[in-house]
Design a protein around this nucleic acid. Structure first.
Lengths: 136, 136
DNA sequence: CTTGAACCTATAGCTACTAGAGGGATTATA
DNA sequence: TATAATCCCTCTAGTAGCTATAGGTTCAAG
């Protein structure tokens, strides 16, 4: 049996966040001690690890509820879980592309030895006026 | 002069979001028509495009305020901006690293063609039981 | 048995929006 | 010029996913 603090340490999920997850129904309310403190089992630990990992990957709480429900019926086809992942992958790839472009421009700027920001590559890029016009 | 609706269409920023940006001081309150409706200039359009682009890239509103302030003083020596740029660069690079890791995992997940969830890579991966055990 | 850390609930605040109510302004057409 | 459709206004409240605070209780070590 784990206290909420131990659970927090082992999963890396903060204590108020654990209570929040319980509140919104992402995890079940655990048993309590005589003095009304939460006591978690190994199962609770696994479930929270799953949630932590999913959140890190950017899945919404609703998505995770879906995934958790799915995982409770292992005979069910995984098509649904697959769909959630594919949808998210597309989103992530777009973000990577944009960030790489910005990275290039920021590198330019941080090497900048010009006198002014007048032709600043970052500002240009963010304003979406096309690629950097001046070579720093 | 653009109405808020036209501005919204041209930038892809929703109308309530534009008003929200005004409220939190990210954009200046524009002139109004006789009938008290917002009227934007080309400058307003540029500024909002800049903001849109920056938000897409994951910068917080506070970050963007910084960038905008920077861009308003084009005579400011580059040296002053150097540190800020480097800071943003680091931030961006961290985000790229995280997203690449996420991309790899999601690609893995989305290749799952198992018949049932029992062997589904999504569930395995999210449960953090190590890398995918079966090659799809 | 005491003391200090860890726990409890409840409420409020945070970021970045988004939706709705109830009303006024603008514009295209009859 | 009238009127209907569409746009816009403010204000309030709701959303996700936490995080912080206040004021009190329980647990475990010495």
């Amino acid at each position: 049996m784990l206290s909420i603090g131990e659970l927090s340490k082992r999963t890396g999920v903060k204590i108020p966040t654990i209570r929040y997850y319980e509140q919104v129904g992402l995890i079940d309310a655990p048993e309590r001690s005589e003095g009304n403190q939460r006591r978690y089992t190994k199962d609770g630990l696994n479930r929270l690890s799953f949630i932590r990992h999913s959140r890190d990957l950017g899945f919404s709480i609703e998505d995770i509820k879906g995934l958790l429900e799915l995982s409770q019926y292992p005979e069910k086809p995984c098509q649904d879980a697959h769909g959630i992942a594919v949808q998210y992958l597309r989103n992530v790839q777009q973000r990577i592309t944009k960030l790489r472009r910005l990275e290039r421009e920021l590198k330019h700027l941080s090497n900048c030895d010009a006198d002014s920001l007048a032709d600043c590559a970052v500002i240009e890029t963010l304003a979406d006026h096309g690629p950097c016009k001046t070579e720093h």
